[in-house]
Design a protein around this nucleic acid. Structure first.
Lengths: 347, 347
DNA sequence: TTGTACGCGTTATCAC
DNA sequence: GTGATAACGCGTACAA
């Protein structure tokens, strides 16, 4: 059996409550006793029991992470470990631990969240995704349980805590960048429209086109899963059009890599024949041939800020709603160029 | 305040202990009362409090994950999310949750593990790395705390639970594959020699060469961090040799990508001028140009088996030491070919 | 400044 | 079969 507060108390010749106060560093304990008790703690190798402490204080110092379904492709994306690094650093800096539940189906995830929350395992939760209709958000909100969403929630975004980029603006700026290079036939390859992030980037793209008086072509917009296959398929669709685009905005580096590979197969050169900009700026963007111009959304910071702000909400129940926008930066590499004299590509 | 076992007891007109027994599905409770109690639980929306349960039963149904330092490059590797998927699936299937501590330095990690273990937060631990000299392993072993290592521990491997591939055999087989293609100047680019996995693959490589009567050249062996830069640097070193290798065994896909990029810059074609085999078969291997021949080490299964076997150890204290070897498979793609008439590459 | 006593929500050991 | 009651290890009013 592990050494408890009582053992320490006995050896130090004080009451258990005194030991407890020493641990909490209560100012009402004399320095002398504090020192003696601490010595005994060291000597006996005492470590506080989190479980007992949690039960008594009704707080766990643990944050629940709600992941997308493990069968989901999001898990494959390098986005994930990076945001986790940020989360863990933010949590660790305030002495919080991370607790994960996962599941293969949405139902499993939901049940996991309920068990975690009702079971009192965590003090708050962070959602690592944001879908259009989400039971988990509805549940947490109803229970008034502290939580933060990474990515903007679809609705109630004024009363939900979230950390996100300004994806609309980012979508707009990359499109403007392409327009400025001389492109006017610009395709958009996005992820599932259930994901708020896709929608926002798409809207930004459309806004930029409208602002420049370029006609919107539905045929130029392809949405599919965040998979490389999707990127490949999208390229086939776009390049088989009568007037194929000379530039493409791709909502994810992984997809963009699929795009690149497909173009390579088809003998189409980037950026000479087609320009590509993508999002997230994960390692892949840098490693791709040619290296991709990509929007650095500062993934680490998304996680870090999410953890920090959740903890603030937990420790400060009356904190106002937090909406944190992490800045992005377009990282220019070698996947964009001027359109090839507007001559159309034949497939 | 959440609804407790007492509330249920009151409404159902039974004692709290009876409710507890219904939850545990004790055979000594009549079906009739069970049903009534369950109805009340549903009606009140009762959920057991994990914390209280843990305190009383001295078990948490949570597994502690010990990560490498978050500043570590291992975190960048796609290996990580995949193994996590396996872990979470294995844990979830037995109703265990995952608990993580992280830290920036080794000391922070160690302290986190101690707090987690002594604090009674978890029933067992899984180490997501295996280093040559490791305080964490020493500590867990000394306390006789259940744990499993992913990757083979350097010493005491007969008395430590681990899940691993046969990396020696894998290193040997890929080297034999290259030899069989006609190569006899084969380089090895590995990770840090602190990591057991590097050592094993290197030994396999050396064994294959010796078996074929090919002389070992120290100059052909480069070890560095699992970074893409390292891959690039290694290429420079190897190709500036008097007799540069015509094939390279690279211990990690990410490194291999660095190798590929560097060769590309130098105008050296794979597999025409140099053959490459690498390890892990993460997405990158498939996406690379050319797609890399890589050893699929079944990362998901490593995680899954680790979780499953740890749980077995937890629930069955007298379980014998578990050493699980997950099979690997060489996935042949387009990065290997016959040596180019043994003509040497000039840099 | 320190000690006493109770409660946190559950499981487990007795009784009946 | 079911009901009291005592742990589990700690925090905290309330006393002293």
């Amino acid at each position: 059996m592990a050494v408890t507060i009582k053992d320490v108390a006995k050896v130090a010749n004080v009451a258990p409550s005194t030991v407890s106060r020493v641990i909490a560093n209560s100012p009402r304990i004399s320095e002398k006793t504090k020192e003696r008790v601490r010595e005994v703690m060291d000597q006996l190798g005492y470590h506080p029991n989190f479980i007992a402490r949690s039960l008594a204080s009704q707080s766990t110092r643990a944050i629940g992470l709600v992941m997308p379904s493990s069968t989901d492709v999001v898990f494959q994306n390098p986005f994930f470990p990076t945001v986790l690094t940020g989360l863990s650093e933010g949590a660790h800096s305030k002495q919080y631990a991370l607790h994960m539940t996962t599941g293969k189906t949405e139902d499993e995830i939901f049940d996991g969240v309920v068990a975690m929350v009702q079971g009192g395992r965590v003090d708050g939760a962070i959602l690592l995704y944001s879908k259009v209709e989400d039971r988990v958000i509805a549940y947490l909100k109803e229970r008034n349980f502290p939580f933060v969403v990474i990515g903007k929630p679809f609705k109630d975004d004024e009363i939900t805590n979230y950390v996100d980029n300004d994806n609309f603006k980012a979508g707009k700026e990359v499109t403007e960048y392409l327009i400025q290079l001389g492109h006017d036939k610009i395709g958009f390859i996005g992820g599932n429209l259930d994901l708020v992030v896709t929608v926002e980037r798409l809207l930004g793209y459309e806004k930029a086109l409208r602002n420049s008086g370029i006609e919107l072509e539905d045929k130029y917009i392809v949405n599919d899963e965040f998979l490389r296959e999707s990127g490949q398929d999208a390229v086939e669709v776009l390049l088989s059009l009568e007037h194929p685009p000379t530039a493409m905005v791709v909502a994810d580096d992984l997809m963009a890599l699929g795009v690149l590979n497909k173009l390579d197969e088809m003998g189409i050169t980037v950026p000479h024949d087609v320009s590509i900009v993508s999002f997230n700026n994960v390692l892949i963007a840098e490693m791709a041939r040619p290296p991709l111009t990509s929007v650095d959304i500062n993934i680490f910071e998304l996680g870090y800020q999410a953890a920090k702000s959740l903890i603030q909400i937990i420790e400060n129940p009356n904190e106002p709603t937090k909406r944190i926008i992490v800045p992005f930066k377009i990282v220019t590499r070698y996947s964009c160029g001027h359109p090839k004299d507007y001559k159309e590509i034949l497939v």
